[in-house]
Design a binder for these strands. Structure first.
Length: 466
RNA sequence: GCCGGGGUGACAGAGCGGCAAUGUGAUCGCCUGCAGAGCGAUUUUGUGUCGGUUCAACUCCGACCUCCGGCACCA
């Protein structure tokens, strides 16, 4: 299996540090607002990475941090007249809800910055003791000049960085490129006590404190959006390797391409900011998930409703045919050669693509010919059907798609009864009443579909959205 | 200025030293009481430009044009 690492800028053979155990860390959100579809892109992609590693037989321990204290949270809380803690709590809950709806299930542990302040302080003390950090007027900074490898991940040389820099001038820093590990408390701000007085943690060290605490001094994978490469991940490497003296801190650095809107980065100031909730008001969460996976994770996606609609159509096509396969019963032993062959080649293409740096676009593309074969088939080949069901189960687990979990709030017998009456009406050609029943059921979120004399029904995904 | 990633049919978007996936859209036909779903067929000279290497280049090399992102708060 090949994995692309930003550090080497190439695909490398994947091999975990220790046997069949994979330890991965992904930079989580700052919880000060509704999560947007850019978050969705990154976290869905990383979810599939974790799911696939799990499928490959690795035992995956996946930690995500939650930044629940920082300037944005403090400022937003002030605007709204509530405490920073309250604001963070509220949006953390919303974040969990949105992730749940997107079927992101692989995270083993969410770790909040505010619950790891002790570890953060310990790391800062360690850095100061080792001469990599200095205290200045109640704040503590990392001394970038002490870490020779700074810039390796982003391919930047320190001199270049400083040259083109628009670094914030801060007279407390020895050098503009130094970054804050501990920020002195300002008026009316939340604070923690520390050896340097009251203050709060800087951003970069939160992740190293959490990841080293749970995953160890070196671990396998670290993921996040492409915008985090610099300076965030450079800073993490500097902190971690300075503390532990061990290189590399992380074996594989994975970065997701940006989600763009109108060809530009999504930003509040551009007015093209789209939240997950906004999209899910009118789209099936599975369609959004499919849309995000129907591109390679390292590629950018230029979001538009046209493309989302297109993805919805494509997803429904696969979903419909897979449902047909999963519902198949009373199969015989009559061999369907075409189906078997297509299944075989699809399976190979799917896993080859996934093994090649989690290429979900190509993996999904391989599913369409299978869908076609299913639609053409009468599903009489019991061995092929069994294998088909197994395969669909596998890809559902890996992609987190094609899972039909619509809960029925009415007894299925009632719907079956209604459909029996409708069948009689259709036989008697009383189509007005038959159509009326179809309409009414549709309003209740039950979609029905006539297939010859038989009628299938299912819970509509879209109408279950809030 | 520095660093990174792109430019492939109407649109989206993979792959690859020889055959250019896949989806969506469009057109026609079939199926169907209708709807939906589906099936069959068709759809445009499709690889940014110019050179080089090669028997063979969309793929490798060089130059150029152009788009996007990062450069110290970002998924």
């Amino acid at each position: 299996m090949l994995v692309y690492s930003t550090m080497s800028r190439t695909k490398e053979e994947f091999e975990p540090l220790k046997g069949r155990i994979v330890k991965m860390f992904v930079c989580g959100p700052t919880v000060y607002d509704y999560p947007h579809i850019g978050h969705a892109k990154t976290y869905v992609a990383m979810d599939v990475v974790a799911r696939y590693l799990h499928f490959k037989g690795y035992s995956v321990f996946y930690v995500q941090n939650i930044t629940d204290i920082d300037d944005k949270i403090i400022n937003r809380a002030k605007e709204q007249g509530i405490s920073a803690e309250e604001l963070a709590e509220r949006f953390l809950r919303i974040y969990y809800e949105d992730m749940e709806r997107l079927n992101i299930k692989s995270v083993s542990l969410f770790a909040r910055a505010t619950q790891h302040v002790d570890e953060i302080i310990e790391q800062i003390e360690d850095l100061i003791a080792k001469g990599y950090a200095y205290e200045s007027n109640g704040s503590v900074y990392f001394d970038v000049s002490k870490f020779g490898d700074f810039g390796n991940l982003s391919g930047q040389r320190k001199e270049e960085l400083v040259a083109g820099a628009r670094v914030e001038v801060d007279e407390n820093k020895r050098s503009p490129e130094d970054f804050a590990l501990w920020k002195k408390m300002k008026e009316d701000e939340p604070f923690w006590d520390s050896p340097w007085g009251r203050g709060r943690p800087g951003w970069h060290i939160e992740d190293t404190a959490i990841s080293i605490n749970y995953l160890g001094q070196q671990y396998d994978m670290h993921g996040g959006g492409i915008d985090l490469i610099f300076p965030h991940h450079e800073a993490e490497i500097a902190i971690a390797e300075s503390i532990t003296g061990k290189k590399p801190f992380v074996r594989y650095w994975l970065h997701t391409g940006f989600l763009l809107v109108n060809g530009e980065k999504m930003a509040k100031s551009l007015g093209n900011f789209l939240t997950i909730r906004e999209i899910l008001k009118s789209y099936d969460p599975m369609a959004l998930r499919f849309f995000l996976l129907y591109a390679h994770y390292r590629s950018p996606i230029d979001f538009s409703y046209d493309l989302l609609n297109e993805a919805t159509e494509a997803y429904d096509r696969l979903d419909n045919s897979f449902r047909k396969a999963l519902e198949a019963q009373d199969t015989e032993e009559r061999e369907e050669k075409e189906l078997r062959e297509t299944l075989e080649s699809c399976r190979k293409k799917f896993f080859d693509a996934m093994d090649d740096d989690f290429n979900t676009r190509e993996a999904i593309a391989a599913l369409f010919p299978l869908a076609k074969a299913i639609n053409q088939s009468v599903l009489t080949d019991d061995r092929a059907v069994t294998e088909l069901k197994e395969f669909i189960g596998e890809i559902s687990g890996i992609l987190g798609l094609f899972e039909h979990r619509g809960e029925v709030s009415v007894k299925p017998e009632i719907i079956d009864g209604v459909l029996e009456i409708r069948r009689i009406l259709r036989e008697e050609k009383r189509y007005d009443l038959a159509d009326m029943i179809r309409g009414k059921l549709g309003e209740c979120g039950i979609e029905i579909e006539d297939r010859g004399k038989e009628t299938k029904w299912r819970i509509s995904q879209r109408s279950t959205d809030q």
